[in-house]
Computed example of a mutant assay.
Amino acid sequence: MDLSALLSPDCTRCAVAGSSKKKVLELIGQLAAPRLSGTTSFDVFESLLNRERLGSTGIGAGVAIPHGRLGSANKPVAVLMTLAEPIEFDAIDNQPIDIVFALLVPEDHHEQHLQTLAAVAQRLNDKSCTRALRDAQSDQALFELFTGGSCT
């Protein structure tokens, strides 16, 4: 799966100062909304927060994959961040997270949504990939690693 079609350099951030789960979800909204015509950062935040209320998207090993569907979205968009310091995210292993990959899709993209989540989870379960992402020193390096480097 070509994740560079979903993830763009302007939605990739390295060593973000995210003090809480809520702040990280808000930042995802700020990054993703400009790429989703007709969608506000609050729409994105609310979609992600509603999904988190169903159960945490913290998959363990320091990784979270928040995701949501948006009626106003016209295409899927992803956001990738590493955090400067791990934060509590109610992950399944009760460990803090420091890698966040968010996926936002149009309301009617059910199958694509599930396939993309599975592909991302597989990449982020690879210890060499997560190690490389954590070692990235810039937004661009993080983007290149995830879309074409050691995480493919």
Rank of each mutant, 00 (worst) to 15 (best):
L3N: 00
S4E: 15
A5M: 13
L6M: 09
L6Q: 05
L6K: 06
L7I: 03
P9Y: 08
A15V: 07
A15E: 09
K22W: 00
L25E: 03
L25Y: 04
E26Q: 14
L27P: 02
I28N: 02
A32T: 08
S37I: 14
S37D: 14
S37Q: 12
S37Y: 12
T39D: 02
T39Y: 03
T40P: 02
S41M: 05
S41K: 04
V44A: 05
E46W: 11
L49E: 10
R51L: 07
E52K: 01
L54K: 14
L54F: 12
G58F: 08
A61K: 09
V63K: 00
A64V: 04
I65A: 01
I65P: 01
H67I: 07
L70Y: 07
G71K: 15
S72A: 14
S72N: 13
S72V: 11
N74E: 14
N74A: 13
P76C: 05
A78N: 00
M81S: 00
M81G: 01
T82E: 02
P86Y: 08
I87Q: 03
E88Y: 13
F89H: 07
A91W: 09
D93W: 10
P96G: 09
I97T: 08
D98N: 13
A102Y: 01
L103C: 00
L103R: 00
L103N: 00
L104P: 01
P106Q: 12
P106C: 08
Q112R: 15
Q112A: 15
L114M: 08
L114R: 07
L114C: 06
T116N: 09
L117D: 00
L117H: 00
A119D: 06
A119H: 08
A119S: 08
D126G: 01
K127V: 10
S128L: 12
C129V: 10
L133W: 04
D135Y: 12
D135A: 15
A136S: 15
Q137M: 12
S138W: 08
L142H: 08
E144Y: 05
L145Y: 02
L145W: 04
L145N: 03
F146D: 01
T147D: 02
G148W: 11
G149L: 11
G149H: 09
G149D: 10
S150K: 15
S150I: 15
C151R: 06
T152F: 10
T152K: 14
